[in-house]
């Protein structure tokens, strides 16, 4: 059984058809690169997978681990292990990266019947993830993407990926806006995630 099976997926945005019958099968451990010109629906696919409400699925199905996720809320999909790295990560002023991550990790653990992570364990995990991305641990205390450069925002998405440890990650143009060194670091991190 595939990890993810997309069958005949048709999606409209603002009444316009964007995806017109997409099929895709992804197995655990595989890496797929989805390519296409601007406006061909790459981001739409990522958003639809993550459960964004602005899109209307008109036909087809998305089956994750044998279950359709079409009717699942975004947070339910996340708890099943689906992660999306945003192309344009949004700012949440005043909410620290640390709080967002700790709350996310606890929500995911709770959904699996696990106890909350201890503050010490969490801090260790978050700091080591930050270091492997070449980010100062102080980064964790800043507001989510607040005043971040484009590159910092992208690295922050990968930091979240590394801390949350999902099963399926959809990276929406994570490499764009990163300098060469950052691409290297991010790539290393993604490789580590894959194994």
């Amino acid at each position: 059984m595939s990890l993810l099976e997309i069958r005949g997926l048709r999606v409209n945005a603002g009444g316009q058809p964007i995806l017109k019958g997409l099929d895709l099968s992804v197995d655990l451990g595989e890496v797929h690169a989805i390519m296409g010109p601007n406006g061909s629906g790459k981001s739409t696919l990522a958003n639809v997978l993550a459960g964004r409400e602005d899109f209307e699925v008109t036909a087809g199905d998305m089956v994750y681990r044998g279950e359709s996720i079409l009717d699942s809320e975004p947070e339910e999909r996340a708890r099943k292990g689906i992660f999306m790295a945003f192309q344009f990560p949004v700012e949440i002023p005043g909410l620290t990266n640390m709080e967002l991550l700790k709350t996310a990790v606890d929500a995911l653990r709770e959904s699996r019947g696990q106890q909350k992570i201890s503050a010490a364990d969490f801090l260790k995990r978050a700091r080591s993830a930050a270091e492997s991305l070449g980010l100062d641990p102080q980064f964790l205390r800043r507001g989510v993407n607040e005043g971040f450069s484009g590159g910092e925002r992208k690295r922050n998405e990968i930091l979240q990926l590394a801390v949350i440890e999902p099963t399926l990650a959809v990276l929406d143009e994570t490499d764009s806006g990163l300098d060469i060194d950052s691409v290297q670091l991010v790539a290393k991190c993604v490789d580590a995630f894959q194994s």
């Binding site: 993550a50 947070e75 996310a104 929500a107 959904s111």
Partner: peptide, 9 residues
């Protein structure tokens, strides 16, 4: 959406 995508109610 960012928060919910990370698993938060």
């Amino acid at each position: 959406f960012l928060c919910r995508q990370r698993g938060i109610d």
